[in-house]
Design a protein around this nucleic acid. Structure first.
Lengths: 236, 236
DNA sequence: CGGCATTTGTTCGTATGTATC
DNA sequence: AGATACATACGAACAAATGCC
C-alpha cells in the first residue's frame, strides 16, 4: 500500500522544519492541498491531523491551518522523553553496564511490585547508566521468560526491544507509566553515586503486548538532581 | 451538528466500562456496527480510533477489534493525571486556599523561570492544597494580565480555565510540561507541611494559546511522598 | 497448497453543516 | 448575503491480513 497520507504528512513536516513555511503562517487551504498532491480531501485531512497531533500545526474552523512554533516540540515528538532519552538524543551517550542478569520466580512481594503473574519465571536485569563519570541511573527490568525466550546478556546490552519486535516478532501494544519519588534503597546506594541524596525519582513501566498480556516491568531509578521528564499536551 | 461519531464512542465506552463486553472479547465487526448504529463505516471507524487512542480497544488487521483490560486506564484517560487530579476524581476533594494574589512585573530572573515576556505585568497567585489535614501542594501561577484581564481572587478560587475559555473566549492551544525534583525553598517550608523532606516534586507548565503566544506559567510543587504522575502510552 | 469469505486499512468523490470574513 | 474554509457524514471501491475449507 502506498500510504499517501503519510507521504503528504512527511512533505508538509519537512516544509515546516526547513522553514519553507514559517510559524504563524497559514498553510494552503485543504482544497488547494488536494490539488497540489492530487489527493482527496479526506487524505489531506488525515495528514493534517497527524501534524496537529504532534504539535506542528493547529486548525481553526473557518479560518485555516496555521503553523506553530516548533522549537518547543522538536524534542517532545512522540510523546515522552526521559533524561536518558534526551541525553542520548543530544549525543551524550550513556555507557551502560549490566550489573546483574538472573532468573527469578515471581513470588508474592515481587508480584505486588511488578504486577507480573505469580509463580512465573522472569529474567531480572540490573543496568547502571553512567554519564560524565557518574553512575546516575539504575534500570531494573523484569521480562517474562516464556514471552521473551532466549534473552542473553549480550542482547540486553544492545537493544532488548529490537530483539522482541524483530527477532521474536512480538508486537508491543501499550505501556502504563508512573512517576514517583521514593526513598533511596540499599541497592541504589550500592550501584549508584547517590551522593547525599536519600530520595530517588522513579519511573515505573508496565508494558503489555497487543493481546493485553503484560510481559515486562521496568523501574528506572534516577538520582533526583539529574532527573527531568517532559511532555507536550494538546488541548482537546 | 450531531457528532455521531462521538455518540457511538460514548456508547461503546459505556458497554466496556459496564462489562457488557469483557476484556479479550472481540467487538462486532465494523460493518455490523454500521448496521447497529445506522452510520457509515467512516463514522464508526472514527469512534473506534478514539477508543483505541484512550486505550480501551486495539484493532488487528484482518482479525477484529478487541477490548483491553481497563482497570489500568480508567484513571489515565485524557492523557495525564497528577495526584491532584486523581484525588479530585476519586472524590477526596482538596480544600484550596489562595495565600497570595498580586501583580508583578516580569523581571529578568522571573523571565528566565517562567519564559513569559520581559517587562509585562502578570498576576501572581499562590494556592495551597490541603488533603486530609495536611498542606501538601503549593501551586504558583503567573498569568499575563493583558491576556487574562479582570482576574480576581474569587475567580482564582473557582476555575480560572473556565473563566478564560468561556468568559474571555480565549482558546487554549497546547502546553509543555516538565517534571523535576528540586530543593525545597523557603516558601515551600512556610506554606506547606514539608515535614523532614528537603526535596520537592515539581511540575512546571508552560501554557500557550492557539496562536502560539504563551500566557501562563504554573509550577505545582508537591511534597515528594504524596506525588504520583501517571501516563498511558500506545506504541505507534 | 490454492481459493474464498471475513475483517481491518486506505483512498476517493460527494454532500451538507458551520464558523469566519 | 455571499465566498471561503474547516468539520462531519455517507457510500463505494480496492488493498492487505487472517482464517477456514
Amino acid at each position: 500500500m502506498t500510504k499517501r497520507y503519510r507521504e503528504i504528512y512527511e512533505d508538509l513536516k519537512n516544509s515546516i522544519l526547513e522553514g519553507t513555511v514559517s510559524p504563524g503562517e497559514k498553510l494552503p487551504s485543504e482544497t488547494d492541498l488536494c490539488k497540489r498532491y492530487g489527493a482527496s480531501r479526506g487524505t489531506v485531512r488525515r495528514a493534517l491531523e497527524l501534524l496537529a497531533k504532534e504539535g506542528f500545526v493547529y486548525s481553526l474552523h473557518g479560518k485555516g491551518v496555521f503553523v506553530l512554533e516548533n522549537d518547543l516540540i522538536s524534542f517532545s515528538v512522540g510523546g515522552l522523553v526521559s533524561f536518558k532519552e534526551a541525553a542520548q538524543a543530544s549525543g551524550k551517550a550513556f555507557s551502560t553496564v549490566v550489573s546483574r542478569f538472573a532468573e527469578v520466580t515471581i513470588d508474592e512481594p515481587l508480584q505486588k511490585k511488578t504486577n507480573l503473574p505469580l509463580g512465573k519465571t522472569a529474567y531480572q536485569l540490573f543496568r547502571v547508566r553512567k554519564l560524565e563519570g557518574e553512575n546516575i541511573i539504575l534500570d531494573i527490568n523484569y521480562f517474562l521468560k516464556e514471552l521473551v525466550p532466549g534473552l542473553t546478556e549480550e542482547i540486553a546490552a544492545a537493544s532488548i526491544y529490537e530483539y522482541i519486535e524483530e527477532t521474536l516478532n512480538q508486537k508491543i501494544g501499550f505501556a502504563k507509566r508512573v512517576i514517583q519519588v521514593e526513598k533511596a534503597t540499599r541497592t541504589d546506594k550500592e550501584q549508584l553515586d547517590v551522593k547525599q541524596y536519600n530520595l530517588m525519582a522513579v519511573v515505573k513501566n508496565f508494558v503489555y503486548l497487543y493481546d493485553g498480556t503484560q510481559f515486562e516491568y521496568t523501574e528506572s531509578r534516577h538520582r533526583p538532581d539529574r532527573f527531568i521528564f517532559t511532555d507536550f499536551a494538546r488541548r482537546r
